[in-house]
Nucleic acid binder design. Structure first.
Length: 234
DNA sequence: CGGGAATCGAGGCTTACTTCA
DNA sequence: TTTGAAGTAAGCCTCGATTCC
């Protein structure tokens, strides 16, 4: 990790910014959205960097992303101070047309993953539902996507997976409920039949009774529920 | 209209830094 | 002066809800 950084981190930087903490920024964002104000972050900067021959900085994107924080540009203070003119542009700073194959017309561009990309992502999801940064980067490289896009895909995939699981659980519980209701009905009916019949095994309250559990056909003395439970699991 | 990629906002966790006893 | 605990800011990440193509 450190190689490129060590080799290239010869930048001169002078900055002045007015802004708050993360939480303050969060609140500010909210306020700005409500008031439709301009962001209150003010930036003044001077930066100087030496070109690095082995630099992996992509020409088609934003150098600050690669250098600083490719995935969360809005969270980078560097980015905040000098680039973050529009609030909440997680992914949507101006993009070049060759960004990911389509043309960018200023609005939110919707990417459609190819079948191969989806298949590889699915395969990867089967192996692990969350990604380490290294896995994310590796996948992004393989798929020619941005790490953030891979991350978003996994995020949505987890959500879909959870939703599906909830549906399955719901169906299962429904089935359980039906089975138990049936069983309950059956037992009630059985009890009613036993009560209405003149069976010597079932007597009224207050008398010592010999009970025959109809389900397991075990004879049980006394009316202790605990005793019955020992013999019968119903 | 539905599926799914992208965004938003909130909150948890970790790390670095500061303050204070 | 040193040290450890407590407090705070910032960054990173995930999640649920929502937007929008």
């Amino acid at each position: 990790m450190g190689d490129i950084e060590e080799a290239c981190n010869t930048g001169l930087f002078l900055g002045l910014s007015v802004g708050g903490s993360t939480t303050k920024r969060k609140e500010e964002k909210k306020k700005n959205k409500q008031n439709n104000d301009a962001p209150s972050t003010v930036g003044l900067g001077l930066s100087f960097s030496i070109n690095c021959s082995s630099s992996k900085v992509e020409a088609d994107d934003h150098p600050w992303d690669s250098i600083n924080n490719a995935e969360y540009p809005a969270r980078s203070s560097f980015h905040n101070s000098f680039v973050d003119q529009s609030p909440d542009d997680h992914i949507s700073p101006p993009r070049t047309s060759n960004d990911d194959g389509g043309d960018f017309n200023g609005g939110r561009k919707k990417l459609r993953l190819t079948r191969e990309q989806s298949a590889l992502l699915e395969e990867s999801f089967k192996l692990h539902t969350t990604l380490t940064p290294a896995q994310k980067q590796s996948l992004a490289d393989q798929l020619k996507l941005k790490p953030r896009q891979v991350e978003v895909w996994f995020q949505n995939r987890r959500a879909r997976s959870k939703l599906k699981q909830t549906e399955v659980d719901c169906q299962f519980l429904k089935k359980c409920c039906e089975t138990l209701s049936d069983e309950n009905r059956r037992l009630k009916k059985e009890l009613q039949e036993l009560r209405s019949s003149s069976s010597p095994y079932v007597q009224g309250p207050g008398t010592a009774a010999v009970m025959l559990c109809p389900s397991c056909e075990e004879l049980t003395r006394g009316n202790s529920e605990a005793t019955r439970k020992e013999n019968c699991d119903i």
